[in-house]
Amino acid sequence: MLLLTHNMLTSNCIKGVSNGYPLIIKATSIKKLESDFNPEFLIRMIPKLDWSAFYKATLMLGDAEISIPEKLIDSYEKDSEFLKKVHHALLEVEVVEGDLECPESGRKFPISSGIPNMLLKEDEI
């Protein structure tokens, strides 16, 4: 699971949960990837991200190499230093093993072999 994907996941589908975002990341194994830098994609995607959830996710990983500012900067389109940091944090850090935890109910969604398991039992929805 990349942090880009984490930004898209919620536990609001659980019955009774209204504030299931962002999910808490409890990583036990993280892998660094190398992927092609695609600034056009980042420029298109950044405005769609929940920046605060992205920022929190980077803190939850507690890795000094993964650092982005708390607030999205102005005119990031032209700042390739900034875009490279976003690229690394968003697309090159894979949570391989661990859990996503619902901030409200504490329900854990296991991540195994890099895949977050968002399946719910029938009585949970």
Binding site: M1, L2, L4, T5, N7, M8, L9, T10, S11, N12, C13, G20, Y21, L33, E34, S35, D36, N38, L91, E92, G114, I115, P116, N117, M118, L119, L120, I125
Partner: peptide, 21 residues
């Protein structure tokens, strides 16, 4: 391939409620 990510997710009557996508 690095620019894709898989999620275990079920489409059902309730999945629309969690459409963060």
């Amino acid at each position: 391939i690095t620019n894709c990510d898989a999620i275990l997710f079920e489409i059902n009557e309730k999945s629309l409620d969690s459409s963060v996508f």
